[in-house]
Design a protein around this nucleic acid. Structure first.
Length: 782
DNA sequence: ATTCGCAAAGTTTTT
DNA sequence: CTTTGCGAAT
């Protein structure tokens, strides 16, 4: 029997020491055979358990190639690989994301699902182009729904494991009826382009295993031991995949925490983990409840918050860590203030020598919230890295160039063809492409194939056909480099297309910036070549580019403050964490508060954020925020009311807060906003002097907002709220210094609402209503 | 037929 | 404040 090898000699380089583990952890590590459910609370050493478990399996003589570990993100897979390299040097255990696993599988068996091995993986924006064509082809009436919502619907179907030919829409759901009509067209377009979207990777893999039992059995045995991380975030297809691969041999270990399930919106089914014990027979359940990460103060807040969820298995968070400092809860006047204050406290802590930049992280609900934080950190000269800002691979110039590579790798790639055919501009426009598309469709050719014979297309003029031939000739010259290093290929693309020259043609600043990005892409290609001397090549690079995102580029080793969404903070930990924007409409997000289930997911999201913090945590919100066309008052997140505020440091407005605490339903008065008036704010009369930041190093989060400042800001908000339309153009107003004048213009909105007043003696002056003492002339001032 | 310029509208979370 | 869509000019 292969598994009875004595542990000592099989792996002499091992650093494995099970004595480092607590009893529950050890039990998980030592359970190798059969289904195992590891319920791991935050900070309970889950990664440690997983890696030790694999190392232990290897010590027991289980061959590395029969172990596969599926993770949720590349980041998690990478971390596991790194830690395993320390515990069990030189052992090649497969670890990666679901999508990568499926992609690998499909490359090997592409023919079974109607693809060839060089298929293209489309990201969401590429897929959207095909979706739009599909919508046209299906001739559906899209008056009531956006293409995006249709795409969402189809994506949801796919993640439920529903194929394009298996779906009957339920009666009375118009969106799904549309989806049912568009879905087959969309799928046909993907197939003819030899492409897949993200969901297809999983769906096709399941289809492949279902239709080929002998292959399923073979793979089941090949990966005799499987581990799945973040099992609470798996969706239906992922669940099916796991079942298919663990049918014969059920040596399956899943880890997860129902309280950290935050991907319901993309089809994750929390029942997958709640029902694990029903799905597999003889499941061993191990609970890791001891928290090694956070202080008692932080855990108390997290615990109190999550206890408001009803759909959960009650669980205590225990720690032997110290009490630590109380969690701070701060209300700031506005996001700029919030950002400045946070940057200031970080700066103070760094300068005092107590902390380094990498000790800090700032979380927000939506990416858009990162802006003011970036500005403040930059102004404070604090090094920071933003995870998932504007993604590198989403930039236009990068997508353009990668499209050339895609077309090189997969000549049927219609999206890539349409992207590159006229970039740089070659006077081959939409109309021509449409003709090519029609011709290609009728002759069953790819777009590039049609382009090769453009002269045969009647509707295309000779001169345009010549331009197309020129393009094809150029493309084929690039194609000669197809089998070279990726760096060489991309250089070939650049020299042949003169893309870089085209970018800087107009000598615009934007052009140079884009050119710099192009250079960065070239370096990325070279880097890839260096790192993949043997398993490289165009196809591998493209797969990497499609499945690796910027989150994975996050460097935990470098000394930066980290900015990221709460979602992408999962699995990470930081000594000091700030979570900003805790306002109603953000957390819970306005689009996620329609029912209790979504609300509970939002609560879990905040729970995840809170439990990332090791030593210090500050939660903050703003009293007003710039949104759409003006400044709007913000209501505190309802979750804040669920926190144990008596044990927290609260820097909330002193008097009762009309925006949050009374909750008497202030609704922004739409009529007080003039969306058609642009706001001109360069006038010197309109000045904004931010309150000076004070700081002290005595407390964890020095109190930088004084109660007086908050009150003042609030009075301003009140004034606007109570008298949204006190002023009108043509009205006579009185200014304490300048006297009486007439309003000639009103612009801006909210706190930035500005009146231009014409004074008989002084001429025109501009005033910000929220700051000035303008009164309607002759009115009884209060 | 293409390109350029302006206006309008839209803003969650991710593989 | 950004991106997308449409209309006019070349």
């Amino acid at each position: 029997m292969p598994f009875e090898t004595p542990p000592f000699e099989s792996n002499p380089g091992s650093r494995l020491n099970l004595a480092d583990l607590n009893p529950a952890q050890r039990e998980a590590v030592e359970t190798i055979e059969g289904p195992l459910l590891i319920l791991a609370g935050p900070g309970s050493g889950k990664t440690r358990v997983i890696t030790h478990r694999v190392a232990h399996m290897l010590e027991q003589g289980i061959p590395a190639h029969s172990i596969a570990a599926l993770t949720f993100t590349n980041k998690a897979a990478g971390e596991m690989r790194d830690r395993l390299a320390l515990l069990a040097p030189g052992q090649q255990v497969w670890s990666g994301t679901f999508h990568r696993f499926c992609s690998r599988l499909l490359r090997a068996y592409a023919g079974f699902v109607g693809l060839t091995e060089n298929f293209t993986i489309y990201d969401t924006s590429d897929a959207k182009k095909l979706l739009k064509q599909a919508i046209e082809a299906a001739e559906v009436d899209l008056r009531h729904y956006s293409p995006d919502s249709l795409g969402q619907a189809i994506s949801n179907l796919k993640s439920q494991g529903v194929g394009h030919d298996q779906f009957t829409p339920p009666v009375g759901n118009p969106l799904l009826h549309l989806a049912a009509r568009v879905y087959p067209h969309y799928q046909r377009l993907l197939q003819s382009a030899n492409g897949v979207d993200f969901d297809d990777l999983l769906l096709y893999a399941v289809q492949l295993l279902r239709e080929n039992p002998e292959l399923r059995e073979q793979l089941d045995r090949r990966y005799a031991y499987m581990m799945v991380d973040e099992y609470q975030d798996t969706n239906r297809v992922q669940y099916q995949l796991i079942r298919l691969l663990n049918h014969t041999l059920q040596n399956l270990a899943v880890t997860g925490d129902p309280d950290q399930s935050i991907y319901g919106w993309r089809g994750a089914n929390i029942n997958n983990i709640l029902d694990f014990e029903k799905d597999y027979r003889g499941v061993k359940v191990v609970r890791l409840e001891q928290n090694y990460r956070s202080t008692k103060s932080i855990l108390a807040v997290a615990d109190q918050l999550i206890s408001n969820n009803t759909r959960r298995k009650a669980k205590q968070l225990l720690t032997d860590n110290s009490q630590g400092e109380p969690v701070s809860l701060v209300a700031y006047p506005d996001p700029q203030f919030e950002a400045r204050d946070i940057a200031e406290s970080i700066s103070v802590a760094i300068r005092s020598g107590k902390r380094r930049p990498r000790d800090f992280a700032i979380f927000y609900r939506t990416n858009a919230l990162s802006r003011s934080l970036e500005t403040s950190l930059r102004n404070a000269a604090i090094p920071y890295q933003i995870v998932q800002g504007l993604e590198f691979y989403q930039r236009r110039e990068i997508k353009d160039l990668i499209a050339y590579l895609h077309l090189l790798n997969n000549e049927r790639d219609a999206v890539a063809f349409e992207r590159v055919i006229n970039v740089p501009a070659r006077k081959i426009g939409d109309k021509t492409v449409e003709k090519l598309r029609a011709y290609a469709h009728s002759k069953r050719l790819s777009l590039l194939g049609a382009a090769r014979v453009a002269g045969l297309v009647d509707s295309i003029s000779k001169s345009v056909a010549a331009k197309i031939s020129q393009f094809v000739a150029m493309f084929d010259r690039i194609g000669e480099a197809r089998d070279r290093d990726v760096g060489e290929i991309i250089r070939r693309v650049l020299t042949e297309t003169k893309y870089r020259e085209w970018l800087v043609e107009d000598a615009s600043e934007e052009g140079y910036e884009r050119a710099a990005n192009v250079d960065e892409l070239v370096s990325a290609c070279d880097e890839f070549d260096l790192q993949h001397p043997n398993d490289g090549g165009l196809e591998a690079f493209l797969e990497q580019a499609a499945l690796v995102n910027d989150t994975d580029a996050w460097e935990s080793d470098s000394d930066f403050v980290t900015l990221l969404t709460i979602h992408s903070s999962k699995g990470l930990e930081f000594p000091v964490v700030y979570i900003v924007g805790l306002e109603d409409g953000l957390i819970p997000h306005e689009r996620s508060s329609t029912n209790d289930e979504e609300l509970e997911e939002e609560r879990r999201l905040l729970f995840v954020g809170i439990t990332r913090a090791e030593q210090q945590l500050q939660l903050s919100r703003c009293l007003s925020r710039f949104r759409r066309n003006g400044v709007w008052p913000c209501i505190a997140s309802r979750f804040l009311m669920e926190l144990p505020r008596e044990i927290m440091n609260c820097f909330e407005p002193a008097k009762s807060d009309p925006w949050s605490d009374q909750g008497d339903g202030f609704e922004p008065d739409l009529e007080s906003v003039d969306p058609w008036l642009e706001d001109g704010f360069s006038s010197d009369e309109v000045k904004e002097s931010p309150p000076r930041l004070k700081s002290s190093t005595t407390t964890a989060f020095p109190r930088l907002v004084t109660a007086a400042e908050l009150e003042k800001k609030q009075d301003e908000l009140n004034a606007i709220r109570l008298h949204p339309d006190r002023f009108q153009v043509g009205m006579q107003v009185e200014h304490p210094e300048y006297g009486v004048g007439q309003i000639v213009e009103l612009s801006g909105s909210g706190l930035k609402r500005v009146a231009t007043v014409d004074f008989p003696l002084l001429g025109k002056r501009r005033f910000r209503l929220s700051h000035s003492n303008l009164q309607p002339a002759g009115s009884d001032s209060h």
